[in-house]
Design a protein around this nucleic acid. Structure first.
Length: 609
RNA sequence: GCGGGCGUAGCUCAGCUGGUUAGAGCGCCGCCCUGUCACGGCGGAGGUCGCGAGUUCAAAUCUCGUCGCUCGCGCCA
């Protein structure tokens, strides 16, 4: 017989009754009745109840084994007595009567419970991550991650893509984030950068003639964390393809995303769906206007409308808005259907929410019996109210909220208000955020350049390697701020999964674009010389995208925090307290690397923990 | 870097406007229990109330500082 097991903890059933078997696993729960003792033995597959009673001299020994110890038990499978079978357990018809037990790894008293969710906080869960990972929920989440990655790979390979690994020790890439640097021992004073993305490598692969590339690629960015952004490192489904238009990239990625989301749609317990048909494509400017964001949550049915013209009318005397309009500001409106009968507190709460966000308030008009009502209705005469109704599609019983500011802050704040209003609606309301849906969209037509407010100069608004729409002709003949790029984002339920682009594969257009953004040719040569040279030896038109794997898994698992789907995540300060990373380097290591530390005195963290 | 929230037993938390032996549930330890499956019953141990200073006759409670965790802003296209 095998030294550890003949079966796993999920596979024994009535068919095995009478067989002598061996199981290994963790002591999940112990139920000690004095004369009879039950152990639920757990491995990654499931649970099996094991029993010992007074008829055995093992009883005293097993009583002393603490939960989470690893044991090997040998015994005969027997049917559970009639009433005691457990229909909730896959192995609930049978039990193993223990004839022999070996403790493979005893457990100390555990710092938090594994067999149940005792609400233990993140700090302690991460410190003892291996215990946390034994818990059912984490086992499921991490297995989901495996399944999603497998699914993504198969779907990409099914479309003819090949997976290649690109370097981890490399040079700075143009993603715009802070780099992680690694000192080079063989090249004193020089540093590698960890890739923020395999951007240049995948483009070089296209220039190398490999048509369709993908990779589950680790990416490194030294930026602060968020709930949906793990510090330091994350994974992308990085892909690139040659001889393609933007539409071709969409046609590859949409079935991958739809496929993987449909495959795991019921993971969280509710059966979620994706609307039929192609993902909607929303131009960037339209998205900023209608949703106040370039990553709109389309489950929220509320939309934003520009109503500057109403408040600019001579017969409207709302001075607070008029002053802002005269300075070039805009007024944005959000129609909230069927809320006129909401209590005063509904509007007051939204108003104080707005004030909490730093706005003067959230003005509104509600329409009942054909008449406008509310604090600012009196400033808007009937004719102007009619224009407002037309613009916003207002009906009796609706209310409309107003945001007035300069264009960009007005758009962004309207976007926040759009969500705040939706969330404030009572359950079951017609405009409630849809549940059980994955609503995807593409945001397209990003501007190529933007005005840097601080320097008042033109800068790239996104990836400088994107192809401008209209190519060289556009760069030469259009107002730079009007030039659009073949640049796109994919968004699901208000979460940005990825950006992508059709790349600029023509060196002369690249030089021109960088020149317009104020970069001298020498900068381009210096930072991206390798790729620029490669472009001069026959570069195919190409483009790609790189959806975030962690975020996909997070949405599918319905977790609010990305650390719940990462095996060994760092904490918010980019520390791994279990591995004690980062840690100080020894004097020998530093000397070998020709590095001397120059620490700011006040900021040295004390070693006492 | 900035702002909000939190910090009390191994874990999760209660402790109102300051008041004398700081509580609960789970866990842990001991005893009892032959059919449980979140087993049950009885008993027990366990706390410099994050740390430091201040106010006060008196501080878990109020004030200031500091450290840690977390969420958000900046940043990350």
């Amino acid at each position: 017989m095998h030294p550890y097991r003949t079966h796993n903890c999920a596979e024994l059933n009535k068919d095995h009754v009478g067989e002598t078997v061996k199981l290994s696993g963790w002591v999940h729960r112990k139920r000690d009745h004095g004369g009879v003792l039950f152990i639920d033995l757990r491995d990654t597959n499931g649970l099996t109840q094991c029993v010992v009673d007074e008829g055995s001299d093992l009883l005293a020994k097993i009583e002393k084994v603490r939960p989470e110890s690893v044991v090997t038990v040998t015994g005969v499978v027997r049917i559970r007595p009639g009433e005691t079978q457990n229909a909730n357990m896959p192995t609930g018809d049978i039990e193993l009567y223990i004839d022999a037990v070996e403790v493979q790894g005893a457990s100390d008293v555990i710092p938090f419970q594994v067999a149940e969710d005792d609400g233990a906080g993140e700090e302690i869960r991460l410190k003892y991550r291996y215990l946390d990972l034994r818990r059912e929920k984490m086992q499921k989440n991490i297995r989901l991650r495996n399944d999603v990655i497998t699914s993504l790979r198969e779907r990409m390979k099914g479309q003819g893509f090949q997976e290649f690994q690109t370097p981890i020790l490399t040079a700075s890439s143009p993603e715009g984030a802070r780099d992680f640097l690694v000192p080079s021992r063989l090249n004193p004073g020089k540093f590698y950068a960890l890739p923020q993305a395999p951007q240049q490598f995948k483009q070089l692969l296209m220039m190398s003639g490999f048509d369709k590339y993908f990779q589950i690629a680790p990416c490194f960015r030294d930026e602060d964390s968020r709930a949906d952004r793990s510090p330091g490192e994350f994974y992308q489904l990085d892909m690139e393809m040659s001889f393609v238009t933007q539409e071709d990239v969409f046609n590859v990625i949409e079935p991958v995303m739809r496929g993987v989301f449909e495959q795991f749609a019921d993971f969280s317990g509710e059966n979620r769906t994706i609307p039929e048909g192609k993902f909607p494509q929303i131009p960037y400017l339209e998205s900023m206007l209608k949703y106040g964001s370039d990553k709109p949550d389309l489950r929220n049915p509320l939309e934003i409308v520009d109503v500057t013209s109403v408040f600019a009318r001579d017969d409207v005397e709302f001075k607070a808005f008029k002053g802002t309009i005269e300075k070039g500001g805009v007024v944005r409106a959000i129609r909230a259907p069927a809320v006129a009968d909401q209590p005063r507190s509904f509007f007051d709460k939204l108003n104080s929410w707005a004030q909490g966000e730093g706005a003067p308030g959230l003005g509104y008009v509600k329409f009942e019996n054909g008449e406008g009502a509310g604090p600012i209705a009196k400033f808007i005469p009937t004719a102007a109210q009619d224009e407002l109704k037309n613009l916003c599609g207002l009906e009796d019983g609706d209310a409309v909220f107003f945001i007035c500011n300069k264009e960009l802050p007005a758009a962004k704040f309207a976007g926040l208000a759009r969500n705040a209003i939706c969330d404030a609606l009572p359950d079951g309301h017609v405009a409630e955020r849809e549940k059980g849906e994955f609503k995807f969209c593409w945001i397209v037509d990003f501007p190529m350049f933007e005005m840097n407010e601080e320097t008042n100069k033109i800068d790239f608004s996104h990836n400088p390697f994107s192809m401008p729409q209209g190519g060289m002709d556009a760069l030469e003949n259009q107002d730079p701020l009007d030039i659009l790029a073949w640049q796109y984002d994919i968004v699901c339920n208000g979460i940005e999964l990825s950006s992508g682009a059709i790349r600029n594969h023509k060196p002369e257009i690249m030089e021109r674009a960088f020149g317009m953004a104020g970069y001298d040719k020498s900068v381009l040569e210096d930072k991206f010389g390798g790729m620029l040279t490669a472009m001069k030896f026959g570069a195919p038109p190409h483009g790609g995208i790189a959806p975030g794997v962690d975020r996909i898994v997070m949405i599918l698992a319905d977790e609010p925090n990305i650390r719940e789907v990462i095996v060994f995540p760092m904490n918010g300060n980019a520390e791994d307290l279990m591995m004690k990373a980062p840690s100080e380097a020894s004097a020998e290591q530093l000397k070998e690397l020709n590095i001397k530390l120059d620490m700011p005195k006040a900021k040295v963290k004390s070693e006492a923990a």
